[in-house]
């Protein structure tokens, strides 16, 4: 969990979608329509644009994905979050 002292909730963080895990439930697109788009044919989610969100909203969308397919990419070391 993020430590509020270390993590500014408005700081932009990079997101990633694991398309093998995605079940196409569309929670991400509903919550953050500017950031996620479900493919019309496959129904699988992808990032649109830069794929960044303020930390608070990023944490929320990660939490709401039922397939745990969305993660925050740690920009410092490039490892999955």
């Amino acid at each position: 969990m993020s430590d509020p002292a270390l993590n500014d909730p408005t700081e932009l963080v990079q997101l990633a979608v694991d398309q093998d895990a995605c079940i196409g439930a569309g929670q991400c697109e509903m919550l953050e329509a500017e950031t996620f788009l479900l493919d019309d044919d496959t129904g699988i989610a992808a990032l649109t644009g830069a794929g960044t969100l303020p930390r608070q909203r990023a944490e929320d969308v990660v939490d709401r994905c039922p397939a745990r397919a969305i993660s925050m990419v740690d920009q410092d070391d490039g490892a999955g979050g």
């Binding site: 079940i23 196409g24 439930a25 569309g26 479900l38 496959t42 129904g43 699988i44």
Partner: peptide, 9 residues
């Protein structure tokens, strides 16, 4: 789930 998910987004 993917077979039916798209209809229910």
């Amino acid at each position: 789930r993917r077979l039916v998910a798209r209809a229910f987004t």
